[in-house]
């Protein structure tokens, strides 16, 4: 096992992913959930560039990473808009308090 930079970046990606998923599981504030999703996106962007680098096709990796950044920013914007609307209509951001649909 050689410690090349890519190994360490893979470690970083997995670390960010783990933190992000853990955050998704334990967070209850809607805005924070959007924020945590952004951590996951960072991890994915890093992973895409890493994959491009590892396969010797960095341009491709870069290109889709750039696209992903923009696309997921849009998702974040819509999510924030939804959160704002939830706050206006339901009066709270706590997902446990807006869990009326069950069963």
């Amino acid at each position: 096992m050689t410690l090349n930079p890519l190994n360490i970046i893979l470690f970083g990606v997995v670390l960010l992913l783990a933190v992000g998923f853990y955050g998704l599981l334990i967070t209850r504030n809607l805005i924070k959930i959007v924020l945590v999703l952004q951590i996951l996106v960072k991890a994915v962007v890093l992973a895409l560039v890493l994959a491009g680098k590892a396969s010797g096709n960095l341009g491709l990796g870069q290109s889709i990473a750039a696209t992903v950044i923009v696309a997921d920013t849009i998702v974040a914007v819509v999510a924030l808009a939804l959160a704002v609307q939830v706050r206006r209509r339901a009066g709270t951001l706590d997902i446990a308090r807006i869990s009326t649909l069950q069963g």
Partner: peptide
């Protein structure tokens, strides 16, 4: 205007994004 509809949208969004 309906909190339930927003709730559904929110779950849909977060799970889709995941």
């Amino acid at each position: 205007e309906h909190p339930a509809s927003l709730e559904a949208g929110m779950k849909y969004l977060v799970q889709s994004a995941t």
